[in-house]
Amino acid sequence: MAFNFKEVMSKPERLAPGHRMCAGCGGTITVRTVLRALKPEDKAVIGNATGCLEVSSFMYPYTAWEDSYIHNAFENAGSTLSGVETAYYALKKKGKIKDNYKFITFGGDGGTYDIGLQSLSGAMERNHDLVYVCYDNGAYMNTGIQRSSATPMYADTTTTPVGKNSVGKMQNRKDLASIIANHDIPYVGQSTLIGTMKDLYEKAERAIYTPGAAFLNVMSPCPRGWRYETADIMKICKLAVETCYWPLFEVIEGRWILNYEPKKKLPIEDFLRPQGRFKHLFKPENEELLVKYQEEVDRRWEELLYKCAR
């Protein structure tokens, strides 16, 4: 399927406006793009872990979702959609449902990397025919920017505040895409918001239309938590990719594929500098932290290249 941008953008909008996500939210751009990958004739049930997206998109009685939607709790989006998907087969078997349904669930990094990891792991391992999309904004934004295991190293968050004795979060972010890929499921993709959204759109399409479990990890910047001007989101995403902080890759049936390799890898400072959460790294006394940061990005990039070269 060749990507025809005009045709893709002419597909029906499945996330209605009127939701209460912040101005400039990356999460809803991700949601719109993923849902656009559904065939218009297919129906869908959307699941959602508790988080910004949930409290803002279905604030009673207003749902922003054109499709059926279920939110259960914070830590169980994977198992909740497992139940919906299983019900579909049970009812289809009995001839009670004629239409084709697809199952997509969204969770932030809190609901996915952390509190919902067990439920996600179970849903992936059982290979339910659903797509779990993590809109990863790298902290618990809904409760006010607390660190998560997805928070990048040295980020200033409200539970890893920068101070006299602190330079922000001390740990590296968890590599969730690898963890899920190691469940040996049919499809894993990592993406972010780039240009026409071709990368994310095509990955979403593959994820939705590959039978079995699929996982998408989508870096979805949060202007409030990351502290940049709302208008700059596309620049930030591009820098994440060009610095190899957030590589674009997919794992199809266990085969690692690198989707984009920058011609000239940019230094990590370029990604960190526009974001207020990393402001402290640019003080002269913290120069060494930037060196360490670059080493970490390089190490992970090399590791990815190795996996993709095999």
Binding site: M9, S10, A23, G26, T28, R32, I233
Partner: peptide, 26 residues
């Protein structure tokens, strides 16, 4: 595709005017 608020509709391959009932001005 970059609008977080689905405020730029596409009709017959052409973008329409902004949906200012919903645009948050990001």
């Amino acid at each position: 595709p970059v609008c977080p608020d689905s405020c730029i509709a596409v009709k017959d391959g052409k973008r329409q005017d902004f949906d200012l009932d919903h645009c948050k001005g990001c």
